[in-house]
Computed example of a mutant assay.
Amino acid sequence: MTKQPCVYLLASQRNGTLYIGVTSDLIDRVYQHRNELSEGFTKCYKIHDLVWYEPHQTMEGAIQREKQLKKWDRKAKIGLIEQNNPQWQDLWSELSIP
């Protein structure tokens, strides 16, 4: 996967604490979360598993989608994850890492 705007969801575990983010470099950003390279919510709550992501053509589109998802209730976010990832598998390994 090359650099591309993405919205993503991380989870601490199945049905655990969720985090929604947006980035122009999904591999690098998830790597930072997984290795706790910055202080914050994901480090504090051990939120490391990539359970959903959605590529976008533009950063503006990705930011708009992130804002939309942040307004959703927890049940809707879980439904979004389970549509394509019913087992809540960590999708990190499916990213193309050079």
Rank of each mutant, 00 (worst) to 15 (best):
Q83W: 01
K75H: 02
S38Q: 15
Q64C: 08
I47S: 06
D49I: 01
E66Y: 07
D25V: 04
A76W: 03
R65N: 04
T23Q: 14
L26F: 07
I81F: 00
E36N: 14
Q57T: 13
I78C: 05
E60H: 12
K71R: 15
R34N: 10
E66A: 08
Q68Y: 00
R34V: 12
I63G: 01
Y53R: 04
I47V: 14
C44R: 12
C44E: 13
Q64D: 09
L50S: 03
Q83F: 04
K77H: 02
M59C: 03
H33C: 05
L80V: 05
Q57H: 07
T23P: 14
D73E: 07
D28Y: 11
P55R: 15
V22R: 02
Q57F: 06
I81V: 04
R65F: 09
L37Y: 12
V22S: 05
C44M: 10
D25Q: 09
G79V: 02
M59A: 10
I20T: 11
K67H: 10
T23K: 13
Q57I: 08
Y45H: 15
T58I: 02
Q64I: 08
G40Y: 06
V22A: 04
H48P: 01
S38N: 14
R34K: 15
E36Y: 13
G61H: 03
E66M: 09
L26V: 06
T23Y: 13
R74S: 02
K71Y: 02
M59D: 07
S38P: 02
T23I: 12
R29G: 13
N35G: 04
E66W: 08
I20H: 04
W52Q: 08
S38M: 10
E82A: 01
R74K: 08
L50I: 05
